[in-house]
Design a protein around this nucleic acid. Structure first.
Lengths: 268, 268
DNA sequence: CTGGACTCTCCCCCCGTGGGAGAGTCCACG
DNA sequence: CGTGGACTCTCCCACGGGGGGAGAGTCCAG
């Protein structure tokens, strides 16, 4: 073999890693030097270790966590490919999240929040046929789509006409287990099998209209909640969304959504 | 005014922040409660503070650092837009970096490293007309393009023909200040004004061919360096790249680059 | 043998947040 | 007027993936 061992500094330059990194990888058991001098504690690496070190450097440059790299190095080639695929998916998801953030930031940077004029008004009592589910904030998109599908299917089966728009009902607090609902107003007096009904009491509300993709709803809610709190009003659940122009009718940029927050009766 | 103050828990639910976060923002001076009870230390927030808290929550959700959020909250609206634009650019850059990583990870996950077969051989002596620069690893792309432009312009001015391919010369260690060079082989005996020459001594080399975008060169280098170290060879600077099919001739997916690492004379 | 380059361990720092311990406070209900 | 439970306080530790530096020890070439 090629027995000449390398000091940590030489090995670090060879593998494009820092001395600190190599020591860290040793401490955590990811890449131990072949020999550690008992007296001085000096670490000595073998040239054959360069392959692993280079692999670590490569995967770190792709931002894989060290724990994942450790698993990938130990695993058989097939399992390794699976691990890499999982990481790829994780990265792809992060990119799409970042792209949504970028779009919001773009909108914020250019001209603030145009169109988010908040108005105070009154809503009438409403009675909606609803379908409910529980989901996390991240799953809201699919959760609502799912509910809407089930609602329309149930209404269709029953042969009942409904009045647009579709409504969404949301809690005030975005917990991990959010109870949400999608509903539609139906002609009065109808009893529908297998459908719940929700009574929405009328009263004073604050509202605004959001135009754009649903991923940018937080911008509109920000303006809405800020206005509510500035007027000393207290929001009350459930928050209501009316899907004036929905995903079936227009591209994401042209979606139109009315956001309504019921507030406490005027505090005199 | 609306004088009723809110405890930290209530305020946290209102603004979609955690109690821990609010305490942290207080400690760091980002958002201090309007009143802190001298005896109990209880924090009390005014409803008017909800706007700032909501803004913080919104910007945090876009991953802005708290320090940046603090500057944005204090700044005038015009400066605020500037800050947001800067963050937008930062995020956009991160996305493009992540996309490059994703492409590499994709290639790694699917079938490992096809085509990176490393061969050992010998290179002849070469004499190149070169243009040099110093750049960071991240700027390599523009640095090389810049050098190539200046090189071709100088050769064109002098009316000298050159033999494809173009060459790139790189140090072994990727420091922050990397001295790189781009060169071309010219007919022998030519003296060119304003151009440096580099003598590339021949000898044993390890080489491979990379097909694909330059962003994925690290994959090929990984295979190359791993093979070199596994054979107990020592790489020597400068590393050479021959741009067989360059960006002017083909789309990124079809770029073809020969990577050559000179190694020490056979270790017996 | 000496000086300079290298290496060792150990500790603190970054960022933003979560978790938990142990103690104190507030408020609504009985 | 208690009391229990929900709330809050401060303080410390943890994460990940290192960087920076102090102070001491080691290696090797001249």
């Amino acid at each position: 073999m090629h027995d000449e061992l390398l000091t940590i500094g030489r090995f670090a330059r060879l593998c494009h890693l820092s001395v600190k990194q190599l020591r860290h990888y040793d401490d955590m058991g990811l890449l131990a030097p072949v020999r550690v001098d008992a007296g001085s504690g000096y670490r000595y690496y073998a040239p054959e270790q360069a392959r692993d070190a280079l692999t670590i450097a490569l995967l770190r440059r792709m931002d894989l966590p060290l724990a994942v790299i450790a698993r990938a190095l130990d695993a058989e080639p097939e399992r390794r490919a699976g691990i890499l695929r999982a990481e790829r998916d994780r990265l792809a998801e992060r990119i799409s999240r970042d792209q949504a953030r970028l779009a919001m930031l773009e909108r914020l940077a250019e001209g603030g929040l145009p169109g988010h004029e908040v108005t105070l008004g009154r809503e009438p009592d409403r009675r909606l046929a609803v379908v409910r589910t529980v989901c996390t904030p991240a799953e809201t998109g699919t959760g609502v789509g799912d509910c809407a599908g089930r609602l329309l299917a149930a209404l269709g089966r029953a042969g009942i006409a409904w009045e647009p728009p579709l409504w969404g009902l949301y809690p005030l607090d975005l917990d991990e287990r959010m109870a949400i609902a999608v509903g539609a107003q139906t002609p009065p007096g109808e009893g529908l099998p297998g459908l719940e009904f929700a009574e929405l009491p009328g009263g004073p509300v604050a509202e605004t209209v959001h135009i754009g993709p649903y991923a940018q709803l937080p911008l509109a809610y920000h303006a809405l909640f800020a206005a509510v709190h500035e007027r000393g009003l207290r929001p009350r659940a459930p928050v209501r969304e009316a899907y004036l122009v929905g995903p079936a009718e227009a591209p994401p940029e042209e979606l139109m959504t009315r956001l309504i927050i019921p507030v406490q009766e005027s505090p005199a």
